[in-house]
């Protein structure tokens, strides 16, 4: 089982606690979105998982083992932390060849991942000629180098063009379908909503949520129904009688709060009210996330610790 586990993971930089008693498990076969505002501790957590930073207390393991004890770790875990990391004066291919050599991965695999990342035609160009989007693709190619069962990506959509965004979305979904463990940090809600099955949300280094994305949204965003009818006053009367709160916009479209289409549709039908439109208004991840962080802010409004990015 190749899950990522953290147990009571804590990291302090001086007096600043970047990661605060974090316990979670990232499971294979799905894409887990790793959310939180800047400075919430996402990148620090990823570095702790990769054994790059030493935890103040607690443990982080991949497949039950500390990362630093893995033999040829690129075959177990692929990671993109910082797209700027490859040396600008080296070609993309040479950068990947050096990484591959250290983990006894063949040069053939280097060309494969370059092809997969859409960089084959520019593989022999120096990295300093690359756009940010191309560097992201190179970082993702490096993460895939060892064909690892676990993939960690820190803000992979940064700087990607629309085509690149679609590519990464499909890549992440495919990696999860293949049964891999995929953890992707982001602060872009719409982007995360497009690929994540599960969410882990951090705030000030602490775990705020660890839940399937659907549940996360449904628990936090009130369900609403949009209705259009030929007889507005009748609709208003009907809704009021049944205890629904509703409002009408300028174009005669009604929004019914805390309601589901099943209930409103049946009410209208029983009352013989002609409907022109009836639709559920899906809550967005962004709404749910803002609701969570607003609630969190209420509890933590007193001494605001300075946060490090």
């Amino acid at each position: 089982m190749t899950s990522i586990d953290t147990q009571d993971l804590t990291k302090e930089y001086g007096s600043n606690r970047a990661v605060d008693h974090l316990t979670f498990r990232v499971l294979p076969g799905r894409v887990t979105g790793f959310l939180g505002p800047n400075g919430a501790g996402k990148s620090t957590t990823l570095r702790l998982v990769l054994g790059l930073d030493r935890p103040t207390s607690g443990t982080a393991t991949v497949g039950g083992r500390a990362y630093a004890t893995l033999d040829e770790p690129l075959r177990h875990v692929g990671a993109l932390l910082d797209a700027q990391a490859p040396h600008g004066s080296r070609t993309a291919r040479d950068h990947l060849r050096a990484l591959a050599a250290g983990n006894r991965i063949g040069a053939g695999r280097v060309d494969e991942v370059l092809e997969e990342a859409g960089l084959a035609s520019v593989a022999r160009r120096r990295v300093k000629t690359y756009s940010l989007g191309m560097r992201q693709r190179l970082g993702i190619a490096a993460a895939l180098l060892g064909d690892p069962p676990v993939v960690l990506l820190d803000e992979p959509s940064n700087g990607l063009d629309p085509e690149g965004i679609i590519w990464i979305r499909e890549l992440l979904r495919r990696l999860a379908r293949e049964g891999r463990t995929v953890l992707v940090s982001s602060h872009l809600m719409n982007e995360t909503a497009s690929f994540a099955d599960h969410l882990i949300v951090l705030g000030r280094g602490r775990l705020l949520a660890d839940t399937p994305m659907r549940d996360f949204i449904h628990a936090r965003v009130e369900p609403r129904v949009r209705v259009r009818t030929t007889d507005g006053p009748a609709l208003r009367g009907l809704l009021t009688r049944h205890g629904y709160e509703a409002s009408e916009d300028d174009e005669g479209r009604w929004t019914v709060h805390h309601a589901r289409v099943e209930d409103i549709g049946r009410l209208a039908s029983d009352a013989g009210l002609p409907l022109l439109e009836l639709s559920a208004e899906e809550g967005t991840l962004e709404q749910a996330y803002l609701d969570l962080t607003a609630a969190e802010a209420e509890f933590t409004s007193t001494p605001a610790q300075p946060q490090e990015a």
């Binding site: 570095r47 990769l50 054994g51 790059l52 990362y67 630093a68 004890t69 893995l70 770790p73 690129l74 875990v77 990671a79 932390l81 910082d82 700027q84 990391a85 490859p86 040396h87 990484l99 250290g102 983990n103 490096a142």
Partner: peptide, 18 residues
């Protein structure tokens, strides 16, 4: 020093954690 630019060391040590 090329390892201390822009997180290059992190890439190196992710590949070779020893």
């Amino acid at each position: 020093s090329s390892e201390f630019q822009a997180g290059a060391l992190r890439v190196s040590l992710s590949a070779v954690p020893q």
